[in-house]
Write a protein that binds this DNA or RNA. Structure first.
Lengths: 192, 192, 192, 192
DNA sequence: AATGAATGAGCTTTCATTCAT
DNA sequence: AATGAATGAAAGCTCATTCAT
């Protein structure tokens, strides 16, 4: 029973994520989400009182899953460079492996919806990675800059890399692109 | 008469850009655009047969204005570093000075509309800057990567910087952020 | 519940038929149909996804009801003359008794909508009457003509009679007009 | 100059007739008529203050041309039968030769527009043919029926024949169909 | 919990008509 | 006489949301 409940809610959220990324928020009617999730129109609104709450729920779900995977294996690395490289690589690979979710999150972040969320929420979900990154920034020429500004400047190439790989037909050398892009940022920051 | 015509068309396009960035494509009814532009509903469709054409028109207009300004003064600089720095600065300042237009272009680029445009068009509009950038890439560790991939990876921090400045309350040191972000990328690419 | 459903759908279709004949397809907005049927605008589109489907549905409904009544009592008549007279009379009386439906069907047949329907469908619905008519034609001077051509030539006065009666103020001798018009066609065909 | 005027008015009316029959009254915007007639939108409304007046004008134009041709050669025939046969043939051939105009007139007659015209107008335009027909009716079993009722009942096969020929792919024996249909009606009326 | 019929505000787009030039 | 930009009232249709069952 509890599983049924979760099943339906999960089915709706998963379907929503897929359709939102395929067609955009506004291009995806709730009725279509319900139909493709195999539930009735009313059931969707039983679990998510408004469309906006469905969007938010899907966003948080994905974001926390993503944050968990980005931090995976970071602590096992020794040097800061290796820790941050691991994170860099994790982030890109997650985006490449979950293009739907990835694009959904990006879409969410650049839509009017984001303004309704407390901004600090967005960085908090990846604690391990956050520490490493913050430490690196403090030793770099970005020292003193607001942390979220430095963070977004440094990490912005991740997004470019993910999109490039996703849009390519598989003929792009992923590993080289990941390492090269990381190398540029790391050398830029530290001189090493 | 010719001015009247341009006036109305221009008024519609400008109003559209403002509202689109404030509320998104789908959140902005054509009726609202018309009302705020001070014309009738029918007049909007007299100049732009569909909403999509209005969006495209606005995009091209802005894109070409932006490209022109990004290339401004590049040729007067001597070294490659200075040329590219000039471009970097121009791009960021344009985004900061025209936040509506800037966000509109970004929104356009990550929406389904972009797929209907020939992809080569998007880079062509800034020829001078394009040359410098391409030259720099060829001498860097990105050598051999598809040009548009290298391009987007390198320029991605520009977007992060613009957004940071626009979202800040003016208490951010623009010049330092521009120079620092450029410094990171340049050192990352060239080791200098 | 099943009745409710039928009630609403039926109410919409009946209202549509009335308004279409009074004002034409194009002169009848869906909003008016909904209002006069006592349902909301959305409900109409819940049952009929497009206006065209509403028109088609109404047409098929009426056509099959009409065909059933035209064939009524034909088999109980003995001679061919009596069978065909019965059919002739039935057809005219149906048109006179259901002027809305009758004019609607005529309007439908001379509109672009009809072209989307398989043409053989139109004759098939009155099998008994069809047999008699076909037999009569084969013995007449129309022998060898395409059946639907002969059919339409012979039956065309039915339409004229219906319209005359409907447009008159009730001071027309119906029975005489029915018998006379039939007599002309029968004598014209058979010489009897 | 006077010719210019007529030219434009005529061009508009002729274009209107063609488009109305191809697409229906409601399916033909005035702007399309103007464009295809090679005049501006405003010019159309200069000559025809409303769309309805344009429709009426076109109807009268065609109707009088048609009536003239239907009566052609009738007086040269000797017997009543021959006169009426000539008229019958003329009517059908005109419809077949001018399918656009013919269908336009039919469309007009079965549309709401017709109710705004004085009904006697419709028969008056073919005086010679009218006389013969009236005489024949008076000698037939239709004697005493209102003239326009008798008229429409008798002439209804003309419409069926025209439509059959127009819709056929040219593989219909026109002359036989004309003669046969006339024969049925004439024999039905007179017993000859 | 689950359904899906019902709602009605709102959307993009059309088009007969007007009017300044 | 001729133009065509401008108008704004509809039109068909969508969709988030409600509610009786």
């Amino acid at each position: 029973m509890a599983e049924d409940r979760n099943d339906k809610k999960t089915a709706i959220a998963a379907t929503a994520v897929r359709l939102f990324t395929e067609r955009g928020f506004h291009g995806t009617p709730t009725s279509l989400i319900a139909r493709e999730a195999g539930v009735s129109n009313g059931t969707l609104f039983h679990y998510f009182p408004t469309k906006e709450e469905l969007i938010n729920f899907a966003y948080y779900e994905i974001k926390s899953r993503m944050a968990g995977e980005i931090g995976g294996g970071v602590e096992e690395e020794r040097t800061d460079r290796e820790k941050m490289w691991r994170m860099w690589r994790n982030a890109i690979l997650w985006g490449v492996d979950h293009p739907d979710e990835y694009l959904f999150v990006q879409q969410f972040c650049s839509s009017p919806f984001i303004r309704k969320l407390p901004p600090e929420e967005i960085l908090k979900n990846a604690p391990a990675a956050f520490e490493v990154l913050a430490g690196t920034i403090e030793k770099s020429c970005l020292k003193g800059m607001p942390i979220e500004v430095a963070f977004s400047v440094i990490c912005s190439p991740i997004d470019a890399v993910v999109r490039s790989i996703v849009n390519s037909d598989g003929d792009l050398d992923r590993d080289r692109l990941i390492d090269t892009s990381f190398g540029i940022v790391w050398r830029g920051l530290t001189g090493e």
